[in-house]
Design a protein around this nucleic acid. Structure first.
Lengths: 169, 169
DNA sequence: GAAGATTGAGGAATCAATCTTA
DNA sequence: TAAGATTGATTCCTCAATCTTC
């Protein structure tokens, strides 16, 4: 038999659910209105910008960006059309393909990063105290570890997840 | 000039971002595999189940479920096709329409609720301590208030957001 | 003119099936 | 046979435009 949530639990859950629905939409709108990029586009540009030769195997990129392979294929199709990335054959494995960031892709990322960071500040970092923000990170890691150990590991091993480290001057 | 995030901030942000991307996907899969409902379907059934006569004006329903009007129209189209809801003319305003839950919609909700509550428990409630869960709710409300005052107000005025209160006989 | 709601076009996500190389 | 990647079909979301009633 199911154990229902208490009213208090329902209220906490409801607030959290609204947040995780609305936040991605907000970040998506902010990013799209400033540079015409989706969050997925941005995420991929960030990952490529951090990789050697600004290129990555499709499957690695899919794992890193938490996307399915099929989703990434469609995604890269669109980005190729937009001139942000190119495909190249993998030199060591003929089954494999590389996604390579173009100069235009790099320029786009550099143009988009400041507004995106501002958006993160505006909606998250500046709204909370430093301590609250750290707590949010803690709780997120705990939930992420239970939800998807691989995603958690990916986050843990993270050095620079924001393009700031490479983009700034 | 943009102030970048520190590395520590980036790590917190990254964990949180991964979480808010993966969680809705997980809940969506859980719900869909158990009863063939999307999160949007479920949300609408819950709202209607709590409303007088199990019916609501389209615009009210859109506001409550944080959906655009156009999105809700398409959504209700699909649910009418699936037999979960019906449309009716609003008696007091000829511009308005009501979405009315059908008996089949009610049955579907009752069938879906236990698994969904279990899913919320499994991925959130049971992973955290009571105190952590309460903190998550607190932080969510604070962020929600800054992000979207109306959504925050909707959550605050909430009594029963889970069908538990009405579904459990 | 503004509010309630719908429409249709286009973009993006998922799933199962497919193709190629290891 | 399994792994890397793509494809096509379907579903869902967004946006701008439209229609009706207030």
């Amino acid at each position: 038999m199911t154990t229902w949530l208490t009213e208090a639990q329902q209220a906490e859950w409801r607030a959290f659910l609204s947040l995780i629905v609305l936040l991605p939409e907000q970040f998506g709108r902010d990013l799209y209105s400033s540079q015409g990029l989706t969050m997925s586009d941005y995420e991929i540009l960030v990952r490529l910008s951090e990789a050697p030769d600004r290129s990555m195997r499709m499957s690695d990129l899919a794992d890193r960006t938490l996307a399915s392979r099929s989703r990434l294929t469609h995604q890269i199709d669109r980005m190729v059309t937009a001139g942000l990335v190119e495909r190249a054959q993998c030199p060591v494995d003929k089954r494999g393909f590389l996604a390579v960031m173009t100069a235009a892709g790099w320029k786009k990322l550099v143009a988009a990063a400041p507004a995106h960071v501002e958006s993160v500040r505006e909606h998250i970092v500046d709204v909370l105290t430093d301590e609250e923000f750290a707590t949010l990170g803690q709780l997120s890691r705990k939930l992420l570890a239970a939800l998807d150990p691989e995603a958690h590991a990916a986050v843990q091993s993270l050095v620079a997840c924001d393009p700031a480290a490479s983009v700034k001057h």
